[in-house]
Design a binder for these strands. Structure first.
Length: 901
RNA sequence: GGGCGCGUAGCUCAGCGGGAGAGCACCUCCUUGACAUGGAGGGGGUCACAGGUUCGAUCCCUGUCGCGCCCA
């Protein structure tokens, strides 16, 4: 028996367990050994993570695809796992240590700290996985991976060593994005530009050899900067070579204030003569652009003879002024130093003016502090080289973005890609497999023994090696995810069967972080692309369109929605609203509406059961005799085809919408209603067939909805099995409907007419405020229609509240006439309704008909249209004209008929 | 500054060369035996603006205005 109410919270856990026990989501099920493979790798959530709405969307999309393909008989692998999330996890554990007033990371040392992190992972790392299960994610959980587990770490080592040996990984000393709070380098992508109000300070640098006079521009050169504190490290002032104002000064020297050094004025293409004074200070060690300028001139004497060749670092790792700065500033924080330097320059009359501007300041995406361009030695990947095949693969269409326009974004970035800084001064992560000899010569190897062997060979004796302390960027290991999770570098059967994966589903925000890098690594280490399609989705926003954020307090927690309304309601809401190229707005109302849909489904199943409509073994919908039943099969087939096509094209909203409309507006509103008289009528073949068909259609609905609403459909699949033949499998492993050969235009013509007639009568009665049963006279209709009316008389009477149906050659005087599929149904309503109102209604109809005719006539009267438009379009227009003319005649007749009343 | 995208019913969005659509919201009616988490009916739009291409433009092109995002 189906319970009166559907309680998701009671059911979902039990259903999840049933799936688990049946091993429903296991890839490589023996019964599917010969089936085509289908695979998706999950974007591994951070092991520190908790399910948010973005995860809910991302994973529902994947789950819909996996369940759809699984039901289509494929051997599906949805590969799950989590990411060690270097910085994020290290921060979580450090915070925890602090809260518990335990010794900090550095006090406890690397080994103890890492042990601590692993402990933390063992305790809390499973949270997100359990939350994904609550959403209904049909991953093969037996294959769960972690980016730092043994196999994946082996893959990381191999990749690092191989790329190093090919020269695609190298060590370099250059400016990096340095996080002065976390004390590590980060990659370009981890820097977020925060736009805000800032200041531009204009300074005067006195020229050498003349007496400085603030009133006389000939005695100084004006420069402007947003970073006054870095002026202490200036190595030059640059002007554009074509800038007439400064041509005579190139080669001259200026007295760098406060630092009391002489620095040259040089010519370089970099300064923009239109901006500011046209002269810029060059601080090679603290600005990326300046570093480039310096690189072009580094061989010149004027740099060579400066401290460190003109590359003067001013900061400690914490961004405090270091020993290269004048004594009075040493040890000061960068912003304190800024204040002092401005004041000191002002004192000397060297501050010209301060402008308020808006500018973008780089911030660390994790620490949220201002990032410093900082001179350090780091490991880099030659991304430029690895990008080439990755670009080609998309250009050649081997990998396709959905929607397509993301390819532009991908190309733009890939074609201008910069070296990828992969070393991090952290502890939690894959430690870089590099060892240094006594003279700092580096030996990169898969393990210490191998490195030792190489070193011994190199030095001619055994030496003590020191391992590189740094770890790799988290995204380094995630870049290997599509093949490392399948067992690479071992040649596993899974790798052979499931790589390349079919599709990657992910948010637009990690195209660069992840998608691009998987493409690069996949194409370098595997013979093929990592995935055929890349489905890109966007953000889930709150009801008012604001980005969800903890600080705004507008975060909608998917788990609490699941608690309240069920995972199915949430999933279906997301799927009905996901639109490529648009963020999703999620209001509580939306989920409620889809919860109501689930309720509707539940109640319809109860109705079917209540009416003794149990599944019949071997029932073939093609064998149905009753036109109603043939029509239901016809509509089911239509919906099935629509949903299938939409899912194949990643049109999730279309698929969900088609399912919604079919289930509610076709099956419940019409099929169930029209079946009632048969189901409650006398026993017989027609009743049996209708029962069987009702149960069959419900089964098909459960299948079609399963990818979207797995829990409630699986539960109904289970309870409906209490009657009729036993089920052979869980719905999750059931067969996707194949509904060929059920199309039936004759049944559509018949039932469609009945529906249109009922709708027209209802509409008229409602408009005219008629609440009593009224008679209907079919006026001058064909014999076929008369026969139909007879067959469906009971239904029409019941559903349209009609007292009697009869036929006559013409409409009775003073009756209201409705045109239904080209034929007239007359309602003798004299004395019941206001005939003026009816005249007004008809006048409106007439206007519409005339407007239609006018428009079509204008077209058909246009020679150019007839000459140029495709034939079928012209024919269509002619048919429209005929239809409208017919309609007009019927309305005119109806108006005429009212005259006598 | 470069790139991508969006302006269609009160709201959220489909449609993307030949009759303006859906869901929600709104209004009216309905305690009919699966469901008021329901049923029936209804109103509501110079498809941002201006040009162009076309027999025909919400749809293609150009420009303007407004909004969003990414990169510099």
């Amino acid at each position: 028996m189906i319970d009166k109410n559907y309680q998701p919270s009671d059911v979902e856990g039990r259903i999840a367990q049933a799936w688990e026990e049946a091993g429903a989501f296991k890839a490589g099920r023996p019964d599917r050994a010969k089936a085509p493979a289908y695979s998706i790798v999950i974007p591994p959530p951070n092991v520190t993570g908790s399910l948010h709405m973005g995860h809910a969307l991302n994973n529902t999309l994947q789950d819909v695809l996996c369940r759809f393909e699984r039901m289509r008989g494929k051997d599906v692998l949805w590969q799950p796992g989590t990411d060690h999330a270097g910085i994020a996890t290290q921060m979580v554990v450090e915070r925890q240590l602090m809260e518990r007033q335990m010794p900090g990371r550095r006090e406890m040392g690397r080994e103890a700290f890492l042990r601590r992190v692993w402990e933390w992972k063992a305790e809390s790392g499973g949270t997100i996985v359990n939350q994904l299960k609550r959403l209904g994610a049909s991953c093969d959980w037996s294959r769960e991976r972690f980016t730092m587990d043994e196999g994946l770490s082996k893959a990381v080592l191999k990749v690092f060593v191989e790329l190093y040996r090919k020269g695609l990984i190298y060590k370099d000393k250059r400016l990096v994005n340095w996080d002065p709070k976390l004390l590590t380098a980060i990659s370009d992508l981890e820097v977020v530009q925060v736009e805000g109000k800032g200041q531009m300070w204009h300074f005067r640098y006195p020229l050498d050899g003349v007496t400085f006079n603030a009133e006389d521009p000939a005695t100084y050169i004006a420069i402007a900067t947003t970073r006054p504190e870095t002026m202490l490290g200036d190595g030059a002032v640059a002007v554009h070579p074509d800038d007439e104002r400064y041509k005579h000064l190139v080669g001259k020297l200026v007295k760098l204030p406060l630092a009391n050094r002489l620095i040259p004025i040089i010519a370089d293409e970099y300064p923009d003569p239109e901006k500011g004074s046209g002269a810029v200070k060059i601080t090679a060690a603290h600005d990326f652009n300046d570093f480039e300028v310096w690189s072009r001139h580094r061989d010149k004497d004027y740099f060579k003879k400066q401290l460190n060749g003109g590359l003067i670092n001013l900061f400690t790792p914490e961004a405090k002024m270091n020993e290269n700065t004048p004594e009075q500033y040493r040890g000061l924080d960068r912003y304190e130093a800024r204040k002092r330097i401005i004041a000191d320059l002002e004192e000397l009359g060297l501050l010209d003016k301060i402008e308020t501007i808006t500018n973008a300041v780089p911030h660390g995406d994790r620490s949220n502090v201002v990032i410093e361009p900082y001179l350090t030695e780091q490991w880099y990947v030659n991304a430029h080289e690895l990008a080439k095949p990755a670009i080609a693969a998309v250009r050649e269409g081997k990998t396709n973005f959905v929607p397509k326009n993301w390819e532009t974004t991908y190309f733009n970035w890939m074609e201008n890609i910069q070296p990828w800084c992969i070393s991090r001064q952290l502890w939690w992560g894959h430690q870089i497999p590099a060892w240094y000899g006594p003279d700092d010569k580096v030996f990169v190897a898969s393990d210490e023994a191998e490195a030792q062997a190489e070193a011994t060979k190199h030095y001619g004796k055994a030496v003590e090696l020191r391992r590189d302390e740094d770890v790799l960027d988290t995204w380094f290991s995630s870049a290997l995810w599509p093949f490392s999770t399948l067992g690479w570098p071992d040649k596993t059967p899974e790798l052979a069967r499931f790589y390349p994966t079919n599709v990657l589903v992910t948010g637009f925000d990690i195209i660069f972080f992840w998608v691009a890098r998987m493409m690069m690594m996949g194409l370098h280490f595997m013979p093929d692309i990592p995935f055929g399609d890349v489905y890109i989705h966007r953000l889930v926003r709150d009801a008012s369109g604001a980005k969800m954020s903890k600080s705004k307090g507008n975060v909608v927690d998917p788990l609490s929605i699941i608690d309240d309304m069920g995972a199915d309601a949430l999933r279906f809401t997301l799927m009905r609203n996901v639109a490529p190229g648009h963020d999703i707005r999620l209001g509580p109302n939306d989920v409620e509406n889809n919860r109501n849909f689930a309720t509707k489904l539940w109640n319809a199943a109860r109705f079917v059961e209540f009416n003794g409509a149990a599944r019949v073994a071997g029932f073939d919908p093609k064998s149905a005799k009753e036109s109603l039943n043939r029509w239901i099969a016809h509509e089911t087939a239509k919906a099935g085809a629509e949903i299938t096509k939409a899912l194949e094209e990643y049109k999730f909203a279309d698929a969900a919408g088609a399912a919604y409309r079919f289930v509610w507006n076709v099956y419940y509103d019409w099929s169930v209603e029209l079946s009632k008289p048969l189901l409650t009528g006398p026993d017989g073949a027609a009743k049996d067939e209708t029962r069987a068909m009702a149960a069959w259609a419900l089964d098909e609905i459960l299948k079609l909805l399963h990818p979207f609403m797995p829990f409630i459909t699986e539960e109904l699949w289970r309870v409906t099995a209490e009657q009729g033949p036993a089920r052979t499998s869980l719905l999750a492993l059931g067969e996707w409907p194949s509904l060929d050969g059920l199309t039936d235009d004759k049944a559509e013509a018949e039932i469609g007419w009945v529906i249109d007639l009922i709708t027209a009568i209802r509409s008229l009665k409602s408009e005219m405020n008629v609440n009593v049963p009224i008679p209907v006279v079919l006026a001058g209709v064909s014999g076929e229609t008369q026969a139909r009316a007879q067959r469906w008389a009971e239904f029409i009477k019941r559903l349209a509240r009609v007292s009697e149906i009869s036929s006559a050659p013409a409409a009775p005087k003073g009756s209201v006439q409705l045109v239904v599929r080209g034929e007239v149904a007359a309602l003798p309503l004299v004395g019941i309704i206001d005939l003026d109102a009816e005249r007004a209604r008809l006048a409106k109809e007439m206007q519409k008909a005339e407007a239609d005719i006018k428009r079509v006539d204008a077209k058909l009267g246009n020679e150019k249209f007839v000459a140029n438009a495709p034939e079928d379009v012209v024919d269509e227009e002619k048919a429209k004209r005929d239809e409208a003319n017919g309609r007009k005649a019927k309305i005119a007749a109806a108006l005429e008929a009212l005259k006598g009343a």
